Amino acid sequence: MVVASPPRARAAVPLPPRATRPTPGRSTVALKALMAGTGLLLVGFLLAHMAGNLKIFVGGEAFDHYAHWLRGLGSPVLPETGYLWLQRTVLSLAVVGHIWAATVLTVRAKKARPVRYAHRKPVQGSYAARTMRWGGVIVLAFIVWHILDLTVGAVNPVGDPAHPFANVVADFAPSRWYITAFYALSIILLGFHLRHGVWSALQTLGVSNARRQRALKGVALALAVVLVVGYLSVPFAVMTGLVK
Results as ranks from 00 to 15, higher is better:
residue 96 V to L: 15
residue 140 L to S: 14
residue 90 V to W: 08
residue 108 R to K: 05
residue 129 A to E: 05
residue 88 R to L: 12
residue 93 L to I: 09
residue 88 R to D: 12
residue 95 V to S: 09
residue 95 V to D: 09
residue 94 A to E: 06
residue 112 A to M: 04
residue 124 Q to N: 12
residue 136 G to Y: 02
residue 85 W to I: 14
residue 92 S to C: 07
residue 70 L to M: 11
residue 111 K to A: 14
residue 132 M to K: 09
residue 143 I to N: 08
residue 75 S to N: 09
residue 123 V to L: 14
residue 108 R to A: 05
residue 72 G to V: 01
residue 96 V to I: 14
residue 95 V to I: 12
residue 143 I to G: 05
residue 131 T to V: 07
residue 108 R to Q: 08
residue 94 A to S: 12
residue 76 P to V: 02
residue 123 V to R: 15
residue 138 I to N: 05
residue 80 E to N: 15
residue 124 Q to G: 11
residue 85 W to G: 06
residue 142 F to M: 12
residue 107 V to F: 13
residue 130 R to W: 00
residue 81 T to D: 12
residue 97 G to Y: 05
residue 122 P to T: 03
residue 70 L to N: 09
residue 105 L to K: 00
residue 127 Y to E: 00
residue 141 A to I: 04
residue 117 Y to N: 12
residue 142 F to I: 05
residue 141 A to T: 04
residue 80 E to F: 15
residue 116 R to P: 11
residue 107 V to I: 15
residue 124 Q to C: 07
residue 128 A to F: 00
residue 89 T to A: 14
residue 113 R to C: 11
residue 90 V to S: 03
residue 141 A to E: 09
residue 93 L to C: 11
residue 133 R to I: 07
residue 83 Y to L: 13
residue 124 Q to R: 15
residue 129 A to K: 06
residue 89 T to Y: 12
residue 123 V to N: 08
residue 92 S to E: 07
